[in-house]
Design a protein around this nucleic acid. Structure first.
Lengths: 237, 237
DNA sequence: CCTTGCAATATGTCTATACATATTAGAGCC
DNA sequence: GGCTCTAATATGTATAGACATATTGCAAGG
């Protein structure tokens, strides 16, 4: 059963439907607020609330004196789905495992400005491990954690809890940036992921911050042909 | 100069700042609307508008009788930036070019359900070409366009206007889905992109619809080491 | 023809008020 | 103690009115 919608939501959905169906193309002039208030028999504030939500969603553009118009679709803002690795594997019904291969505390390399910034004057926890799905390697993870931001990380039992899950529980981040690229597997990657050398791999390089303060940087390497990322742009479902 | 902000925007930004700075952690109870109206000396509707925007942005959660609380950050909804190829190249200050290599109208392959669905009972326009940056190959594009949805595409002068730009101008889409993966360049790709064989390439496979009706499917192949995609989660700037 | 200025108009913001609705703290009862 | 019912409370929705502001169309003047 569809829940009872408030009036401004109904107005919003009606207009959204016209736009998404293509009935109102880009640059089409949406009825004036006065017309809509007559049509729905409500106050202007109610119409305005619906319109404001449509602006927020990027579906319309409003211009004083001219009216409101259907926005041209933005090319560049699909929502990327980067599920975390354990849940991806478990949702396929496969057993998940994490094999820790390296875990040590060290100072940032002064030759690498990125590391120095991340460390923020303290030391770094460096971690490397392999995520397994059904006993076979699924992804290689190399991670640096700023101990200034997450001092407890050094004490965590990363042999049992993968570092991504530990951080998510303990140091919630507020900003993240991911870069996605492709590389050929070198000998080390090929061996760890059970691939032939030079196999194409998908690389997700993610940095996260907590209120401007860097927390961690992680590089996840997936076999390119066995994994893909999905991005969607469209109805907010 | 910072523009004059309306009051509800200022309230919104003040609260957003507290959250993004980490001063108000997840589950922190933000001041009641009555407290905020006293603090800013305004009506409740004004506070409410700010709060509604924060809910829309996913920064807070509101519960009747209990109050409004800072939301725990969503893990997996970064906004992916897929700029279109000509503007990416031009923004680097390099000359952009498109070399059309193939353009023909054909029927969908009955063995490929995807093609049959895309064609929607009509024929397909198949296009292949290379995007050049500063005279060197930058990306290979293979595209199928449903002529049912875009009958004029067959008449477009795709030798001068790249098909992506043409479609954007003429058949605005409303929904898109992109899959991102990595492959090793085969002989054909390596030759067209001027890479050694087996070089890792980043593949963006995008399908678009217009109100549920399929419009086009495009596969763009980039040299993996020379290109990356960026995704961000955080301040909506 | 081009410019300037005015007035009409549609959106943008805000108020004060009203009632609806969900949830919780606490009172009262077994 | 554990249960239920009730009343208080904070948000959710909506109204009618007011004034601000940006932009457009048009008219008057050069």
């Amino acid at each position: 059963m569809t829940r009872a919608l408030s009036l401004h939501q109904r107005i919003r959905e009606d207009i959204e439907g016209q736009i998404r169906s293509g009935a109102w193309p880009a640059d089409y002039r949406v009825p004036f607020e006065t017309e809509l208030m007559a049509q729905y028999g409500c106050a202007r504030m109610t119409v305005s609330k619906a319109m404001a939500a449509l602006v927020e969603a990027g579906l319309i553009v409003r211009r004083k004196r001219a009216g409101s118009f259907v926005a041209r679709p933005k090319v560049h803002a699909p929502v990327l789905n980067i599920p975390d690795i354990p849940s991806t594997i478990r949702s396929r019904g496969e057993a998940y495992g994490f094999r820790l291969r390296l875990s040590r505390v060290r100072s940032p390399d002064p030759a690498l400005p990125d590391e120095v910034v991340l460390a923020a004057g303290g030391e770094l926890l460096e971690i490397e491990g392999v995520h397994d799905a059904a006993g076979r390697p699924f992804a290689l993870e190399r991670r640096l954690i700023a101990l200034v931001a997450a001092p407890d990380a050094a004490l965590a039992d990363l042999a049992t809890v993968p570092p991504g899950a530990w951080l998510l529980e303990n140091i919630a981040w507020t900003e993240a940036e991911s870069r996605i690229s492709a590389v050929n597997a070198d000998a080390a990657i090929a061996s760890l992921l059970d691939l032939h050398e030079a196999a194409a791999c998908l690389v997700v390089d993610r940095r996260t911050w907590r209120g401007g303060e860097p927390v961690t940087r992680v590089c996840q390497i997936f076999p390119g042909e066995a994994y893909d990322l999905m991005a969607r742009f469209g109805p907010a479902g």
